[in-house]
């Protein structure tokens, strides 16, 4: 006990340093999360009263029995899978291209062009994309018509809405994954490649067996980041589709927000908790898979 007191008094200046950080973390992180979990066990109509009515797991049962939620969850997972693969493939491909000896000049320009959307306010970027896809204003369909191709349904067609927002989100996010691959490529051991080359390895073999294994850290980090990123897809839906057409882009974050807007607090927070559990579960799985692979 005295030991602890002695430590506390010796380290009191560090407690002073950490206090504002801890206060903000608790006020705007831990407290709202706990509040959200608490609200998920109460009846919506009483959720905001001082003495809410606790209903146990009723909200979770209602959410898991809600066909709109289940469909929304399915589409969220599908969209996440497609987005993670598309973004990582694009980012890795472009990073390899920029890193290769084929491009002697202009590498900085290419990098800036792909990264600029990352720091562009997402609302502004998606607003522009929304209108690019527009049937009457949009440049995209005007271009397709000009070159004699069939028009792209974009955001208004059930079949293409998900693809349309996937492209817009790839534009916004892929540059971030690209610079992580580039950072990883720049610290790789080039002597290994030379050795492989002397041993007669083909270009493909060098990539597959020498370079790709060294990119594992970037692959793991990017997979986890992208998973978290796309599971919570929200802004692009608010700006571009409002969940439509016909619920095709009504992902879990957006659906939960709509319920919140209709004062269905209990179900909205139950959904938030479920999504939180999925995010944590999938991220940990991705880390595990990344760590377990042999050959490092």
């Amino acid at each position: 006990m005295t030991d602890i007191l002695a430590t506390l008094s010796r380290d009191r200046i560090f407690y002073l340093f950490v206090a504002p950080f801890a206060a903000l973390t608790i006020l705007f992180g831990v407290w709202p999360i706990l509040l959200s979990i608490q609200v998920s066990f109460t009846a919506s109509a009483t959720a905001l009263r001082p003495n809410p009515t606790y209903v146990g797991l009723a909200n979770y049962v209602a959410v898991l029995a809600d066909p709109i939620f289940l469909a929304s969850l399915g589409r969220t997972l599908l969209y996440t899978l497609l987005s993670v693969v598309a973004n990582l493939a694009f980012a890795l491909g472009f990073a390899i291209l920029l890193d290769s000896r084929l491009l002697k000049r202009g590498s900085l320009f290419f990098r800036l062009a792909i990264f600029l959307p990352v720091i562009t306010p997402d609302v502004a970027g998606y607003v522009v994309w929304r209108w690019l896809y527009d049937r009457s204003f949009g440049a995209l369909n005007a271009f397709l018509t000009m070159v004699g191709l069939p028009p792209f349904g974009g955001l208004s067609s059930f079949d293409t809405a998900m693809l349309a927002i996937l492209i817009a989100e790839l534009w916004h996010h892929a540059g971030f994954y690209m610079i992580i691959f580039l950072a990883n490529l720049s610290i790789r051991d080039r002597a290994l490649e030379e050795a492989a080359h002397l041993d007669g390895a083909t270009t493909w073999q060098r990539w597959r067996y020498v370079i790709l294994p060294q990119l594992r850290p970037a692959l793991v980090i990017n997979s986890v980041y992208a998973l978290i990123q796309f599971l919570k897809t929200f802004t692009v839906v608010v700006v571009m589709t409002k969940g439509g057409p016909n619920d095709q882009t009504n992902f879990v974050s957006y659906y939960a927000y709509q319920l919140f807007d209709q004062a269905r607090y209990g179900e909205a927070t139950a959904m938030a908790t479920i999504l939180f559990a999925i995010v944590i579960g999938l991220s940990l799985t991705a880390y595990r898979l990344g760590d377990r692979e042999p050959g490092q």
Binding site: G29, P32, S36, K232, S253, A256, Y257, A268, A272, V279
Partner: peptide, 11 residues
């Protein structure tokens, strides 16, 4: 780790 958009609601 908490989905940011859903954190904003209890905030």
């Amino acid at each position: 780790m908490y989905p940011y958009m859903l954190l904003v609601i209890p905030v």
